[in-house]
Amino acid sequence: MARRKLNKEDIFIATDGLLHELGYEGFHFKALADQLGVGRSTIYEYYRSKEDLITAYMLHIMEAFIEDRDKLDQTARPLEQLRGLLHLFMKHDRILLAIELTPHVQKSSSDHVQQILNHLWKHHHIVFAQIKELVVAGIKCGEIRSDLPVKLIEAALFQAISLNKARNQETTEEWANAVFDMLFSGIRT
């Protein structure tokens, strides 16, 4: 195949599609090279191994989420901050895939892979801590029910990302608002 330059965004888009189609175990550089219309050696110019590529892809997803999260209004009321986080979870729904991939990645493949995985888990824990802080603040100010366990509310918010798979024609904003309203107002009329 002819050699051509790739950019990392193209590689990540193709990686995302193949992970969705083939899963972690079925993903390999030959399929990626075929998808991108290049030889396998071209992929190796960018990444030394499957684990290097997958962790770079996972980090790319997390960094995009963190960048948007850092733009949220930290002075808003707790419930509005939680709404903002839920919108970001819907916008960056691949973050759930990144977290689900973590146990599959061979951590022993390189120190670099291990460092990225540690970095990803650090950010994952920071996001969960932020959700917990906002839930606790929401309970204290009377915006959130105090009779429900904080862990339940925290997990429900984060797991709501998986509801994005059921979205049809709704925009991310419409869907996130509907999920948020269902979580915090219930389904009764």
Results as ranks from 00 to 15, higher is better:
Val105Lys: 10
Ala76Gln: 11
Ile99Leu: 13
His20Lys: 12
Ala98Asp: 10
Ala129Trp: 11
Ile187Pro: 00
Thr55Asn: 10
His104Tyr: 15
Gln130Gly: 06
Gly138Asp: 04
Leu120Asn: 14
His92Ile: 07
Ala14Asp: 02
Val105Ala: 11
Leu157Trp: 00
Thr75Trp: 00
Asn168Val: 05
Asp10Ile: 00
Leu148Gly: 01
Asp70Cys: 09
Arg188Lys: 15
Asp52Tyr: 13
Glu51Lys: 12
Asn164Tyr: 11
Gln130Lys: 12
Ala156Met: 05
Leu97Ala: 10
Asp73Ser: 08
Asn177Cys: 00
Ala155Gly: 02
Glu154Cys: 08
Ala76Tyr: 03
Gly138Arg: 01
Phe89Trp: 06
Gln74Trp: 05
Glu170Arg: 04
Leu22Gln: 10
Phe89Pro: 02
Ile153Phe: 07
Phe65Cys: 09
Leu32Ile: 13
Leu88Arg: 04
Ile95Gln: 07
Trp121Met: 14
Ile139Glu: 05
Ser146Ile: 00
Lys151Phe: 04
His125Tyr: 13
Lys50Gln: 10
Asn168Leu: 12
Phe27Trp: 06
Ile99Cys: 08
Ser41Arg: 11
Ile11His: 08
His60Ile: 00
Gln159Val: 00
Phe65Tyr: 15
Ala56Cys: 04
Ile11Ser: 08
Ile66Asp: 14
Lys132Arg: 15
Asp34Asn: 14
Val105Tyr: 10
Phe27Gly: 06
Ser41Pro: 05
Gly39Ile: 00
Glu25Cys: 07
Ile126Asn: 13
Ser108Trp: 02
Arg48Trp: 07
Ala176Arg: 02
Leu59Ala: 15
Gly142Lys: 05
Met62Val: 15
Ala160Lys: 00
Ile131Trp: 01
His92Arg: 05
His20Leu: 08
Thr102Met: 14
Gln114Ser: 15
Leu97Glu: 13
Ile54Leu: 13
Cys141Met: 09
Gln114Cys: 09
Ile54Cys: 11
Asp73Glu: 10
Gln130Phe: 01
Ala76Thr: 02
Phe12Tyr: 14
Asn118Pro: 00
Phe12Ala: 06
Leu32Arg: 07
Val136Thr: 12
Ile13Pro: 00
Gln106Met: 12
Glu173Tyr: 00
